[in-house]
Amino acid sequence: MSKEVHYSVGEFARLTGISVRTLHYYDEIGLLKARKNDRTGHRQYHSGDIVRLQKIVTLKFLGYSLEQILPLVQQETFDSDLLDTLLAQKRELEEQRSRIDIALKAINRATAVLQDAKEVDSHVLIGIIHSIQTEKEQREWLERYVPSEAVSGLYDRSEEELEELDRRYVELVQEVKRLVGTPVEDPAVQQLVDEQLKINIGFVGEDSYEALSGLADLDEEKLKELEALIPTPFTPEEERWLQQAMEHYMKQNGLS
């Protein structure tokens, strides 16, 4: 029968790659207790603790908390209880992956905007990120009031197309803020409205644009729900001015 091997805390840390500080913490919370050597008074681990530590490291890798791991490492066999926790852990990790994917998408889009514009109004950039973050909720809301193909035409785009839309959106906001207060009949204001309408129609298509334009007929309470998902970068004064400019454009072009 082979003699059991014992390790000091430092030796065990070097052997397993786990820091002494972490081992002390595991000892403190009862997750992996070191034993006191009666002869030397020093705390030590034995070879069987390596297997227990492997359980801890593996369950941590799967995303379990130390609180969840504590009862699991004490079990010699696993049954359907572990199956239930594994399935729950799988769902949690899939949700985390989804959040990470959305965060990476937002970072990529924000990076593209900043690389192009160099300097962007903080409300505008946060608005773009917030819009990406709430895209799922936006789609669900829109599909209650407009055809699903119109919603798909708005969102199902390549990253290159979406980055171009972000760039034009930033330019629009900057131009509105520069021109606000200018008489709405001024040629520069009307050109701004004309260019923006052409961009919008060109992006989603004429049929989808008309369907989405119908949202303006919804009652105020419903529109507030959409505004909460897609906050405007404009002040109330800028919104009123922009609306007046749009109304003047529609009247001048026989579209009202």
Results as ranks from 00 to 15, higher is better:
Asp27Phe: 05
His123Asp: 13
Ala211Asn: 11
His248Asp: 04
Leu59His: 09
Leu242Lys: 04
Leu179Trp: 07
Asp116Glu: 14
Ala106Gln: 03
Val73Asp: 06
Leu218Ile: 08
Asp217Ala: 14
Glu195Asn: 09
Lys251Arg: 15
Gln174Phe: 00
Gly30Asp: 05
Arg178Ala: 09
Glu225Met: 06
Thr232Tyr: 06
Thr16Asp: 09
Glu206Ile: 12
Pro231Ala: 02
Tyr64Phe: 15
Glu239Leu: 06
Lys105Trp: 09
Arg35Val: 12
Leu162Phe: 09
Val9Asp: 02
Thr182Trp: 04
Glu161Leu: 11
Glu76Trp: 05
Gln196Trp: 10
Trp241Phe: 04
Tyr155Ile: 08
Tyr155Ser: 07
Arg97Pro: 01
Leu53Trp: 06
Gly30Ala: 03
Ala117Pro: 00
Lys60Leu: 12
Gly63Thr: 10
Met250Val: 06
Gly202Thr: 00
Ile107Ser: 10
Gly153Lys: 08
Ile199His: 13
Glu161Thr: 11
Thr111Asp: 10
Asp79Trp: 07
Ile50Gly: 10
Ser2Thr: 12
Gln96Thr: 09
Tyr64Ser: 05
Ile107Val: 14
Asn253Gly: 09
Ile102Lys: 13
Leu59Asn: 08
Arg168Ala: 05
Gly254Pro: 04
Asp121Cys: 03
His130Arg: 15
Phe234Lys: 06
Leu62Ser: 08
Leu66Pro: 09
Glu175Tyr: 01
Asp79Asn: 12
Val9Trp: 05
Glu11Ala: 13
Ser19Met: 06
Lys251Val: 08
Ala245Arg: 01
Thr58Gln: 12
Leu242Ala: 11
Ala106Ser: 12
Leu172Ser: 04
Trp141Lys: 07
Lys105Phe: 04
Val113Arg: 01
Thr111Ile: 03
Ile100Leu: 15
Val113Trp: 00
Leu32His: 05
Val173Glu: 01
Val176Lys: 02
Ala188Pro: 00
Ala34Thr: 02
Asn108Lys: 15
Ala13Gly: 11
Glu237Gln: 13
Leu242Pro: 00
Asp101Thr: 09
Thr22Gly: 09
Glu137Trp: 06
Lys105Leu: 12
Phe12Val: 08
Glu143Trp: 02
Asp186Leu: 05
Lys33Gln: 11
Val173Trp: 00
Glu76Phe: 05
Leu104Thr: 10
Ala112Glu: 03
Ile199Trp: 11
Met1Thr: 12
Val120His: 03
Val204Pro: 03
Glu143Gln: 14
